[in-house]
Write a protein that binds this DNA or RNA. Structure first.
Length: 275
DNA sequence: AGAACTTCCTGATCGC
DNA sequence: TGCGATCAGGAAGTTC
């Protein structure tokens, strides 16, 4: 599932191969994926002639800056952008296609149809981004602000890390990795965290996200980048998906539990709960 | 206001 | 072996 490192990898791929291309027409076969003022019709009417100027990212959202509209897009679980020749057969999981003037397509493929492409007027970009209500990214976490936010919640830390308004970009895989690295129990209540644990979480967030970006993200099940390549961070996972495998620090088998309705992996010896 | 629950989707996996 | 039930999960919407 794409989290910030995977989205960043996709962004870099799109920058490399799609920036500069111009849309001739669009085909949408699952309308719910596209959200635009004026609906699908506005999207279909507006996109032809748009040239992709650059691709940005905020948290797990991709930002496609076209000539005079912007897409604020989310891959959710399995969304992918593919750049393919127009004579390549279109599979049933492709739901949005931008036919480009260079003879290729920019295709949005999403088996579960959870992803979204929100088109806004260029002038409304800042307001639309503000509406996402995203917190700082891991690299920009500030101890005092993060602590203040933690001190007023009774939610378990795992749920807090998944809350995009607290930290933007962390999903289920990296939340488990961060808490493992910081030696904090996923069910530890936010308001009960010690300062040294908060510091450890901030540092682990920064380090793990950065390390994952450096190797192209994590491929679990289905993620690939725009070139169809896997990310390699799965080779470095120490908690996520490691159920029953020995903890790399102490050898205790990694356990899997549910926290905030999410599958959660942790070491019951290294990550213990306290008052 | 904050927190929890529901919904959207479909392929993979589980249990009998 | 076969088949129905359950699981996986991010964020928006709804409810309490």
């Amino acid at each position: 599932m794409p989290e910030m490192p995977e989205v960043e990898t996709v962004r870099r791929g799109l920058e490399e191969i799609v920036v500069g291309k111009t849309v001739a027409s669009v085909t949408v076969t699952w309308p719910r994926i596209v959200q635009a003022e004026g609906g699908l019709e506005a999207f279909e009417n507006r996109m032809p002639g748009q040239q992709l100027m650059k691709v940005g990212r905020i948290g797990k959202f991709l930002l496609f800056y076209w000539t005079d509209v912007v897409w604020i897009a989310h891959l959710r679980m399995e969304g992918k952008y593919l750049y393919e020749k127009q004579d390549t057969p279109v599979d049933p999981y492709t739901h949005v296609i931008c036919h480009l003037t260079d003879g290729n397509d920019l295709r949005y493929r999403d088996v579960r149809k959870f992803g979204r492409i929100h088109m806004v007027d260029k002038a409304d970009t800042d307001a639309a981004i503000a509406q996402l209500n995203l917190g700082p990214e891991p690299a920009d976490l500030n101890f005092e602000d993060f602590k203040a936010r933690l001190m007023r919640t009774k939610r378990p830390i795992k749920a807090v890390l998944l809350d995009q308004s607290v930290v933007a970009g962390i999903g289920n895989i990296y939340a488990d990795e961060i808490l493992y690295e910081a030696k904090v129990h996923p069910q530890q209540i936010g308001a009960s965290l010690y300062d040294h644990e908060i510091t450890a979480i901030i540092e682990a967030s920064r380090d793990i996200i950065q390390a994952a970006i450096a190797v192209g993200g994590t491929t679990i099940r289905t993620y690939t980048n725009t070139f169809g390549e896997n990310g390699h961070f799965a080779n470095y996972l120490k908690a996520y998906g490691q159920t029953d495998n020995p903890c790399q620090r102490c050898g205790t088998p990694i356990e899997k539990i549910k926290v905030a309705q999410r599958g959660t992996h942790y070491c019951p010896h290294c990550q213990t709960i306290h008052e």
